[in-house]
Lab assay of single mutants.
Amino acid sequence: GMDVRRLKVNELREELQRRGLDTRGLKAELAERLQAALSGPSSG
């Protein structure tokens, strides 16, 4: 899988935006949010 901790802030935001998620917050928050999205149930 993707290691969200290795991504830069702008990369985290890009991935979040692609999934329609909130791109605001600290890098740690963005990484946590993206990780949750990646490990969560895949819809679609």
Rank of each mutant, 00 (worst) to 15 (best):
E29N: 05
P41A: 14
L16G: 00
G25I: 02
A31Y: 08
S39N: 14
A36R: 13
A36W: 08
A28T: 09
R19L: 15
N10P: 08
G40E: 10
R24M: 07
P41G: 13
E14D: 10
Q35L: 15
N10E: 15
R18A: 07
S42E: 11
L7R: 03
D3H: 09
S43M: 12
A31W: 08
L26Y: 08
Q17R: 15
V4F: 07
S39T: 12
L30K: 01
L34A: 00
R18Y: 04
E11T: 05
E15P: 00
V4Q: 03
R6D: 09
L21V: 03
K8D: 15
L7S: 02
R6Y: 11
E14M: 14
V4T: 06
L34F: 02
S39M: 14
R18D: 03
R33W: 02
A31Q: 14
S39E: 10
L26W: 06
G20K: 05
L7E: 02
S39L: 13
R19K: 04
Q35V: 10
N10Y: 11
G1D: 11
E11Y: 04
K27R: 12
R19F: 05
A37L: 06
M2N: 07
G1R: 09
Q17Y: 11
S39F: 13
M2P: 09
G1S: 13
E14K: 15
L12K: 00
S42G: 13
S43E: 13
L7D: 02
L7G: 02
G40P: 11
A28S: 10
R13L: 06
S39A: 14
S43K: 10
T23I: 09
E14S: 11
R13A: 03
E15F: 06
R13S: 02
E14W: 15
L21M: 07
Q35K: 11
E29L: 06
Q17M: 10
S39G: 12
R18H: 05
G20L: 03
L34H: 01
R33Y: 03
R18M: 06
R6T: 12
P41F: 13
R5A: 14
R33G: 00
R13P: 00
L38I: 11
L16S: 01
G1A: 14
E14Q: 13
G44K: 10
D22I: 04
A28W: 15
L30W: 02
R33T: 02
R24N: 11
A36V: 08
K8P: 07
G20F: 04
D22K: 06
G20H: 06
G25V: 01
G44Q: 12
L16F: 01
R18P: 00
V4S: 03
G1V: 14
R33P: 00
G44M: 12
L7T: 02
R5F: 14
L38T: 05
S43L: 12
E11H: 05
L26R: 15
L38H: 03
L38E: 03
V9G: 03
L38M: 09
G44W: 11
V9R: 06
L38V: 07
L38N: 04
G1N: 12
E32L: 12
A31R: 14
G44Y: 11
G1Q: 14
G40F: 11
R5N: 14
L38D: 03
E15D: 02
E14N: 10
Q35T: 09
L12V: 02
A28M: 07
R18S: 05
R18F: 04
L34P: 00
T23H: 08
R6N: 14
G25N: 02
L7A: 04
E11P: 01
K27G: 05
R33E: 01
V4H: 04
L26T: 15
N10Q: 14
R24S: 13
